[in-house]
Design a protein around this nucleic acid. Structure first.
Lengths: 225, 225, 225, 225
DNA sequence: AATGAATGAGGATTCATTCAT
DNA sequence: AATGAATGAATCCTCATTCAT
């Protein structure tokens, strides 16, 4: 029967790669998927091509992924996991940060996450049409928002924040949306200090942290008289 | 031959639909494309299906569009044009608006544009994997940014703005990114006053306009009467 | 979606071949299916092979048959139709036949139907694993049984028949089963007078028509003293 | 490689399962084959599935069966063997049976054999497309025919039989064909006394044994006391 | 200009079979 | 002997595109 996938879970791997060998195979397949996507784009991304490039047979691919979609999802999942891991560090760094330091940390984190694996992340955002992928990235943001909320609560006195949870959400969403947007349409911005400065200003302004007028450009400077 | 288009121009209509009949046909095809995309999704969006639903033959479709991609692009183009038209009105309304009024206008415009044709816009964002489409939407933003730049220049005295063009760009990008993001992941936000309020706060803060009510502890704000 | 056939009827042709051209194509495909099945057997019966041998593209095949199964069913249907047509003639010939003539007619009909297209019929019986096919052949038998029932009723006085309908059914089923069996395991029997004679004896005996003892072999002879 | 078996003997087990363990394994595989065929049909009948359900590895399956076909054949063989065993008893019972008893015995035997394992037997008949299988069942019939021939010869005086061997063959073939047919198309008949009565009438008529009760108008029958 | 039947390369997926461990 | 991961040829079916009418 060609028509219906009879695999078990329909999304997710077909069998838990407990053995080392299997793990390596799954890894190779996901990485090859990324590579092919980057090198030759969406239309070159066929299961046969992936398998061949990964140095295995199609049969092996289907031993570990019930169908093509599952493989794609695994790629996205992996990307999301890496982002989450990096954001966990940000959360830790945030704990003892002053307001000024915190803002810098957050802005920098947003940029870093986008910069890292930027081309792949971009390809995934642009080329993969699937819904499920987007939800995974949402989860990543939720993680960061939680860490940020905590930080905002701790600095309630110094900041113009009424609802920390909402504010955190808006901040994360904004930064995510802005960096994603930059990644898609103005990749060069991700490397531009000017862009970082503007993000800084946006966050500062939103949080009610004003630097002296006419001195906006000194991001991190001690206020001049 | 599937992958390689041997048609002439590769993007844009194959012939200018000068006759009324042709124009109507092109319209019907684009609208049908939208309808099919909305009703049955990306997978159902085949040229044969579109032609049939539009009441014409595939041959006719290919008389006016060199290939499928061109048809998709035409749909996106039409959407972008409608947005631009609406933003032109915003630009006009902006001319004589005070700072406070302007901010409201801009925020509202961003939301309105996303809300209008939200399902179709969403479908296009989520389902169409093509690169070209995104660039079209960029053009729309550029239009708004220009109008906004002018407005910022005129109100230079009242605002904490050094580089109006850059500020306009960041504002437009932010709002666009935020509303797109909301459209994709939290459609309900587009209808929520809370979301509008936060966008408002973001813009105000970024422009250095403090709203007194909320300024529990305005670090450096000069409260205005 | 590759998995589910989205064709309309799932069994039967995808579109009514109203045009002459289409009819010819459908015919060619069915005949080619038969030819391939006969020449190279079940495993050679792939859609691509059939299309190629029929001198058309696979695409065309799928224009007229929603899937492989439908094509196979069409072949069986055609065979069943031809049998039915031939049996209609038998029904007519039966009307005015005497008891003795009728028995000869029926036995001969059973053999004729099996002999005609015997190899194809055999291939279909042996090789096509599908259920639906079998039901079609059942319909054919029902037709013959009806004609036979009428005949039995008309000759009630001369025959040892209590329930004509049941008797007709048993007769038809027996003859069908016996000839099918012969077709499958002893094809040579279909051409053997001996076999015909035995069928004759079976039917005669079942109907209570006894020929003089020790003279059983004279099938059609006028009884000798 | 799918189509071409490169195994040694092509039919029959690869090695004689001399050890108990091996015997058990072969048994398990055949039984599992039957179970899968019954539960999930022809399509689910893959070697991997069979092995898994039987609790062994595919490798082990191929240790004892050179290819899939051999396994299927073994299943059919087992079924045929069981039938043969049962028919041996019939042959014994026949020895001392009177004409009337013998007819009852034979008819009943035909029905019994079909009824036993009816679902599996049916599945094998309907679903297994292989040629070889059918020949096995032929062997079974030959066995019964031999026993029947002997019986006919012994009762030559009481019966209107010229060629016992041929008559036996026709009888066995008829009964087999009729019960198989019933199994496939009217399974309920196998349990119906009416059907048994008709088979009885068929055999009696064929053998020239008239039942007085029904002989409303026996054309030429010599009524026996 | 319009039609829509025809095309056919290409894609996802299966499964009998092998062979290194 | 047993395992089961790996193989890959082969299958069914799709759909963008063409072109004879």
């Amino acid at each position: 029967m060609r028509k219906t996938a009879r695999g078990s879970s329909r999304s997710g791997t077909r069998k838990q790669p407990s053995q080392t060998r299997s793990k390596a195979l799954v890894d190779a397949l996901i990485q090859t998927t990324a590579r092919v996507l980057l090198r030759d784009g969406w239309q070159a991304l066929t299961t046969n091509r992936i398998a061949r490039d990964a140095g295995v047979s199609v049969g092996s691919l289907y031993q570990y992924f019930p169908n093509k979609e599952a493989l794609l999802l695994a790629l996205v999942e992996r990307l999301a996991d890496e982002m989450t891991a990096r954001l966990m560090e940000v959360g830790a760094a945030l704990r003892d940060a002053s307001v000024a330091e915190g803002i810098v940390t957050i802005v920098r984190a947003a940029l870093d996450v986008s910069r890292r694996d930027a081309p792949l992340y971009r390809a995934v955002l642009v080329e993969l049409p699937r819904q499920g992928a987007l939800e995974l990235f949402e989860r990543v943001n939720r993680r960061l928002a939680d860490a940020l909320t905590e930080w905002l609560v701790d600095r309630r006195d110094e900041l113009d924040v009424v609802d920390p949870s909402l504010t955190a959400h808006v901040l994360v969403t904004s930064l995510d949306a802005l960096t994603d947007h930059a990644l898609l349409f103005h990749p060069e911005l991700l490397e531009s200090p000017r862009f970082e400065r503007e993000l800084h200003a946006l966050v500062s302004g939103y949080l009610g942290v004003r630097r002296p007028a006419r001195a906006r450009r000194s991001v991190n400077g001690r206020s001049r008289p």
